[in-house]
């Protein structure tokens, strides 16, 4: 007996992602899924962004790492609520991992929630977790060939933050090539150039993000 089935294999993740989205909407919190390679500056960007925004909006963070709490400790010292997820080896966060920890974070008291994904330029792009916006970081030392080598991440992200621009004089990296190839993959991608070290570009990024998540 043949059964016709039309079922998306990743529906389970998609369903939970939609449930997460509903929980976020009900709580009135804007959720950013932050992704990049290891060491591109996700936690440093969060530290800078939180300092810029914490007097304007109430911010919380969910940290995703394979193991350990180093990032959560850094964020906690800024006085914002933070939850650490340890994936125990998995290379990305999925909707269910997130769903399981939502009860530990006071969503109703937040305006803006950052989800710092596991450092990886490939897999996190494949899994929606229920976020409002995907933001990715590419740091200059990673090289200007990355958009065309890791296209899905650039196609899925609404925002590209180019970090470590203070290192530009020391690197053989073509900034225009990064922007051009990122836009060729995703014509609507919004690009910011920043240095988490010097703070350059942070104001513009933080103001823009604020405009996206402004509480009523």
């Amino acid at each position: 007996m043949k059964l016709k089935v039309v079922s998306k294999i990743l529906d389970a993740n998609e369903r939970i992602a939609q449930e997460n989205r509903r929980i976020f909407n009900d709580a009135g919190v804007f959720v950013v899924n932050l992704m990049s390679s290891p060491g591109a500056g996700k936690t440093s960007l969060l530290e800078r962004t939180i300092k810029e925004l914490k007097h304007r909006v109430k911010v919380g963070v969910i940290e995703g790492d394979i193991t350990g709490t180093k990032d959560a400790v850094r964020i906690k010292s800024l006085g914002v609520p933070v939850i650490q997820i340890n994936t125990g080896g998995a290379c990305h966060l999925d909707a269910n991992m997130l769903n399981e920890v939502l009860k530990y974070i006071p969503l109703n008291k937040l305006d803006l929630l950052f989800i710092e994904n596991v450092g990886n330029l490939v897999c996190p792009a494949e899994f929606n977790v229920g976020e409002n916006m995907k933001v990715m970081i590419l740091s200059l030392p990673e090289g200007d060939d990355k958009p065309l080598k890791y296209p899905l991440m650039f196609q899925e992200s609404s925002v590209l933050i180019i970090n470590k621009i203070d290192l530009k004089p020391f690197l053989d990296v073509d900034m225009e090539r990064i922007k051009k190839s990122a836009r060729s993959l995703n014509s609507s991608i919004k690009i910011f150039e920043v240095s988490c070290k010097t703070g350059s570009g942070m104001g513009e990024w933080a103001d823009w993000l604020y405009s996206q998540c402004k509480p009523p």
Binding site: M1, K2, L3, K4, V5, V6, S7, K8, I9, L10, R183, S184, L185, S187
Partner: peptide
């Protein structure tokens, strides 16, 4: 670079043979 992708990202179950 301005194009729409129509297929290629499918991950679907279409048919089961069962007893």
């Amino acid at each position: 670079n301005s194009f729409t992708v129509n297929s290629g990202r499918e991950l679907d179950i279409v048919e089961l043979e069962v007893f």
